[in-house]
Design a protein around this nucleic acid. Sequence first.
DNA 1: TGCTAAGCGAGACGGTACGTCGCGTCTTTAC
DNA 2: GTAAAGACGCGACGTACCGTCTCGCTTAGCA
Lengths: 202, 202, 202, 202
Amino acid sequence: MGGPARHHGNRHGRSEAAREAVLEAADDLLTERGFAGVTVEGIAARAGVAKQTIYRWWPSKVDILLEALGSDLAQHLTPADGGTLAEDLRKHLRALARFLTRSDPGMVLRALAGQAQHDPELAARLRAEQLAPQREREAARLRRAVESGDLPADLDLPSAVDQLVGPVYYRVLVTGEPVPPAFTDALVDGFLRAHGSAANGS
Amino acid sequence: MGGPARHHGNRHGRSEAAREAVLEAADDLLTERGFAGVTVEGIAARAGVAKQTIYRWWPSKVDILLEALGSDLAQHLTPADGGTLAEDLRKHLRALARFLTRSDPGMVLRALAGQAQHDPELAARLRAEQLAPQREREAARLRRAVESGDLPADLDLPSAVDQLVGPVYYRVLVTGEPVPPAFTDALVDGFLRAHGSAANGS
Amino acid sequence: MGGPARHHGNRHGRSEAAREAVLEAADDLLTERGFAGVTVEGIAARAGVAKQTIYRWWPSKVDILLEALGSDLAQHLTPADGGTLAEDLRKHLRALARFLTRSDPGMVLRALAGQAQHDPELAARLRAEQLAPQREREAARLRRAVESGDLPADLDLPSAVDQLVGPVYYRVLVTGEPVPPAFTDALVDGFLRAHGSAANGS
Amino acid sequence: MGGPARHHGNRHGRSEAAREAVLEAADDLLTERGFAGVTVEGIAARAGVAKQTIYRWWPSKVDILLEALGSDLAQHLTPADGGTLAEDLRKHLRALARFLTRSDPGMVLRALAGQAQHDPELAARLRAEQLAPQREREAARLRRAVESGDLPADLDLPSAVDQLVGPVYYRVLVTGEPVPPAFTDALVDGFLRAHGSAANGS
DNA sequence: TGCTAAGCGAGACGGTACGTCGCGTCTTTAC
DNA sequence: GTAAAGACGCGACGTACCGTCTCGCTTAGCA
């Protein structure tokens, strides 16, 4: 009563309740049992949903995780634009490190990035839907710095983004070492020393 | 035919022929069908080996791939020490990019790095056996530069390595973009500009 | 076009068009793909009818087939009463054999008889609606023969019917052998020799 | 311990324990829940056997039931040859009626005969493996009667068998009526009156 | 010069999850 | 108030691999 009303599937299309239960179940299973513990049968059982309902809407379990990721990156990882360039970049890399190493959606992203090494199609979707927009958000902050003269006009934005975030992803995905603020701050400092104006606050 | 001759079991220990056939079959399956196509049954069938023989010597299929990787990293990715720091670093990053994106062992490494996101135990082994030694090889070249005065004495070597190779791994594992020499060269230039001596040849 | 006109639901009661389409679709599917090919979904799709419409009017797919059978038995298998007893019985058993082995409704009856072995409720309905009336039609002809003195007064009619038609059903349902006129004629001859008057035409 | 020794599958071939457990489980499920309750999953669960083990050795569940039937017909339904023809036939038809209506293997046979109406391949196998040999056993008794002069030399044996057993199967499979000794005895009497010698003892 | 014991190819076993099919129920919109 | 449409929870299907096991063969080293 009131609202879109609960239903069990009809000609309007899919059940929103089922959709949300699936996404949440997938997320829960990933955090509780890891990627290998995410099975379509397990999701169906935990979500109280029929397997066929899952297959009707998602081609595979990674598509579920992709959808579960949703707009988490945009929400958590849009660089601030309120302070000096150095301040904003330090804040962003700290947030990125925290997101990747500690948050639930960060765990989803890591699992998908891992699976993408085995699955080129997933890799393409992951990049198109999540990573490219995220890189554009990061590039945008640098672009403004270029416009304001804080960074040189001939800066190659994509490469600049890679120099900043690359080492963070590398530590998280490859070496597994912690990514403390000191590390990310030093990254920003080095970046600004290499390209930046002298005036790098701090 | 010369050599230890093929045999079907004896009391002298394991069959070297079987071991090699397994490693090669695993490698072949990975390049031909991708990680999902690497199954113990498939390896056994292609190698002409019994499943039990595989389980006798390797706990899982990723252990096979780890062993197949062998010393490929040390062979292909030991930084040169024959030129200027800039020259050696540029050469190394180019080699790293080529190894990761084009070589067969690079494909194995990427698959293992992907699987490591789902399997902490594999992650630990991969780091201990392959990645840590590799990072040490890279740190060694920088250490010599510190000793020769080309880099500042207070340089944090692990962080420095991350700044150099991190963006390369990031492109390969995450964004999937190509890693041309221009990119790696610019990486070296930025690194030297941030930390380096004035003498960064070229 | 003339007639009650096709409609998609109204308040005038059920759609005769839908009913007929369902019966015909079920019959077609049975003859084309066999009993396993008769599914509610398949009937609905072929009849251009919603599944719910089927479930509204028939409890299960066997009820559809039962209704499809309709009065086919009465039409095809009412024993004649125009000749001598021997003539009428021979004609009837020949017609029975032909109906069971060659006709479409005969195929439906065989499928239902088969399914009835797994489904006591169907068995009961099949007997009540189709088989008992059919046996009564056959008994009726014998009863007249008793009344006319062609058969002994103490004849047990049900058993007599079984002796005549039992071997025919047995061949059709169990042994699968052909049921030629010679077989049914011999059946009648034996029956009349066992119970009958001497005067058995031929 | 002595005997063929328990094993879990090896190069000798299949596990006899698994085979027997499957046959028994199928039989139990049929008697307890009916044919629809006989599922491969259910058999596997009850037998403590993997589904794949079932599919490895039996193409379908009806093959399991066919094998479960085994030599039950030969054991229970071989006509006696110790008395007069009339005595032996009466005894046999009574046994047949009891077997079909009351015994477990009789239930299996009825289920298979029912399913055979939907499955021509099963029908062929059922006839070849069970029904034809059974008919031959019955024909054999009649053949001896012919040889001893109790039945006419020109008797068509298959037809004679059909006249005797056909009505019994018909009652069991089609009308569902009981098949009391009075019915089968009358059947024998009629048969002997139609074809037989005067000497129909009892 | 056999005996013996380890490694081997072979493959059946109990399991888990896969992706598909059909069931019978439901909810909605159109007529 | 019936009809078409179709999503839903459910159960079973038949398949692919998993990791374990038992077996008989092969082959060296020891008695």
